[in-house]
């Protein structure tokens, strides 16, 4: 059977780089899902037309240069203090959309106080929490979210929960706080889940636009380099090892968020 070949000039573009994502090459390792998370945030910003009024607060960690990768205004917070800085920005400019983008070393370790109190105060900011169960930038040390028996450079025999405690489940923790109105966990390990994560980020930004309260989207992510895996194996590990411990789901959706539709 012969088919008529349609030249590319007669086709329409159905997927291209979002405008809110800068053209810079990222410094992330091959297969790192940080870049996927960046793209989803940028797409959500574009779809809501918020590019000119968004301020992104970058963390310390692998995503420390996040402000270079978006075409929105941004600033860099001290380690773990992104929610505190975002609080100040949002209170001074309540008409802006303020997003903090934080990893698990930043948010769940040194910045745990800031995130809990930002949620407790019901700050009208959105936090994108990238959980890859390890400290990426500093060379693969154990994080508060490292799984039991997971080998890292600072737990070479595997995480011993008898001496180091069990991994923190941040979404479950923050869902207990009244000021948090939208807390969900999604994963970036395959196309279906990436699309679900995008919807969650869109909802979280709408929650902020409506001024309902604190919103957080936790994204299970990979760190192929420090896990010592190929990117493809790392995606599989998220599904088989991380998801049983960090179940995906909607941990807090306040009635006011349901009314948004």
């Amino acid at each position: 059977m012969t088919i008529d070949i349609i030249p590319i000039e007669h086709m329409q573009v159905v997927y291209d780089r979002p405008e809110a994502l800068a053209c810079n090459h990222t410094h992330y390792c091959p297969g790192c899902t940080h870049s996927i998370a960046h793209r989803l945030v940028a797409e959500a910003i574009d779809e809501l037309g918020l590019r000119e009024q968004t301020i992104l607060v970058a963390p310390v960690g692998c995503s420390v240069f996040a402000y270079n990768y978006f075409t929105v205004d941004g600033c860099e917070a001290a380690h773990g203090r992104a929610p505190a800085m975002a609080t100040g920005i949002k209170r001074v400019s309540p008409d802006k959309t303020v997003i903090t983008y934080q990893g698990d070393g930043d948010l769940a370790s040194i910045g745990i106080a800031e995130i809990i109190h930002a949620a407790a105060r019901g700050e009208k900011i959105t936090t994108i929490f990238v959980n890859n169960a390890i400290y990426g930038m500093t060379g693969g040390q154990m994080a508060p979210t490292t799984l039991p028996n997971q080998k890292t450079t600072s737990s070479p025999s595997g995480r011993d929960i008898a001496s180091t405690g069990a991994p923190l489940k941040i979404s479950e923790l923050l869902a207990q706080i009244d000021g948090a109105v939208y807390v969900v966990r999604r994963s970036l390990h395959d196309v279906k889940h990436i699309r679900q994560a995008k919807k969650a980020i869109l909802t979280a930004l709408k929650v902020q636009q409506a001024g309902l309260g604190f919103g957080l989207v936790e994204l299970l992510s990979t760190c192929p380099t420090n896990w010592g895996m190929t990117p493809v194996d790392a995606m599989h590990w998220v599904e088989t090892a991380m998801m049983p411990y960090f179940p995906l789901g909607d941990y807090k959706i306040a009635d006011s968020v349901h009314k948004l539709g």
Partner: peptide, 25 residues
């Protein structure tokens, strides 16, 4: 063989946003 359908699944998973997808109108 021109099997590509422009489904964009590759572009959704590409971490480095390398892929632009075209589809017939």
């Amino acid at each position: 063989q021109h099997h590509c359908t422009g489904c964009a699944i590759c572009a959704v998973i590409c971490p480095d946003v390398c892929i632009t997808v075209y589809r017939e109108i």
